[in-house]
Amino acid sequence: MDISRHWRNRKQRYRLVGEVCPHCGAKLFPPRDVCPHCGMEAKTVETLVGTGTVYAFTTVRQAPSDFAEQSPYVVALISLDDGPMLTAQLTDLGDVEPYVGMRVEMVTRKLRNADDERGLIIYGYKFRPVLERALA
C-alpha cells in the first residue's frame, strides 16, 4: 500500500492545483517549487484552468500490470492553455479519433485501482475532447 504518496498529491491530481512563479509569472505544473524559467523560488499555489491542446498521443497496447484492465488506452502530452505541458490519459473518446492539435478539457476520473479490488481507488486528471454545447 502506498496511501500517503497518492494522498499527498490529491490537490494536483483532482483539480490541477499547480503553482505560479511570483517572480516571472510562469504557471507551473506539476508543482516544482523552483521555477524552471527564472530559477527563483515559486511556491504560490494556483489552480490551472484545465483546457489545452493535444501535443502528441499514443495508444498503449502493452500496459503495465497496474493498467492491464484498461488496456488499450490513450496517453497524451497536453499543452495547457496556462502554459505547462503534462502527461495524461485521453478519455471519453468513443468513436472520436484523437489528433495532434485537438482541443481537450480536464475531467477527474479513476486512474486505476491500487493493488486490487480491495485497495484504494486512485482518482486524477484525464482529458477529453471538449464537450460540444448548444448554448455558450
Partner: peptide, 28 residues
C-alpha cells in the same frame, strides 16, 4: 518495472510507459 525510470507521480501514474513515451516523440 520498466516504468520506474519515469516520473512516478506524473508520468507512470497516468499509464505512461517508456515505449509510449517514445511513441509520443515519434508521432510528434
Amino acid at each position: 518495472a520498466l516504468s520506474v525510470v519515469l516520473d512516478a507521480d506524473y508520468e507512470a501514474e497516468h499509464g505512461l510507459t517508456p515505449a509510449a513515451q517514445a511513441a509520443l516523440l515519434m508521432q510528434r
